[in-house]
């Protein structure tokens, strides 16, 4: 019988106030073991205060082939960045 454990993606929050960040993956038979293993694999040097684990199979991802179509709309909207607007030098606090 094949006993390969499912793959989990691990997210760690490094300190209070910051978002959980993807750090890598690991195999575990269930969620409880995934969190325990993540503690040993990814926080041996106080890297985290919180762990999220989710099954890799449950992640929906955009496809690299769709990259152009998906992200093209943002490319033409440079006015979304504050640096788009020229500010007169003598005007302060803007």
């Amino acid at each position: 019988m094949s006993t390969e454990w499912p793959l989990w993606e691990i997210f760690i929050r490094s300190q209070h106030g910051l978002a959980h960040k993807h750090v890598g993956s690991l195999h575990a038979p269930d969620a409880e073991m995934a969190v325990k293993n993540a503690r040993d694999v990814y926080t041996r040097r106080n890297e985290g205060v919180s762990i999220w684990a989710m099954k890799s199979a449950d992640i929906a991802a955009s496809s690299p082939a769709d990259r152009d179509v998906l992200f093209e709309p943002a490319a033409s909207k440079v006015y979304r960045h504050p640096t788009f607007f020229p500010m007169p030098e003598e005007v302060k606090h803007l």
Partner: peptide
Amino acid sequence: VREAAVAHA
């Protein structure tokens, strides 16, 4: 151990 962990899960 690996098999038992899967059975438990």
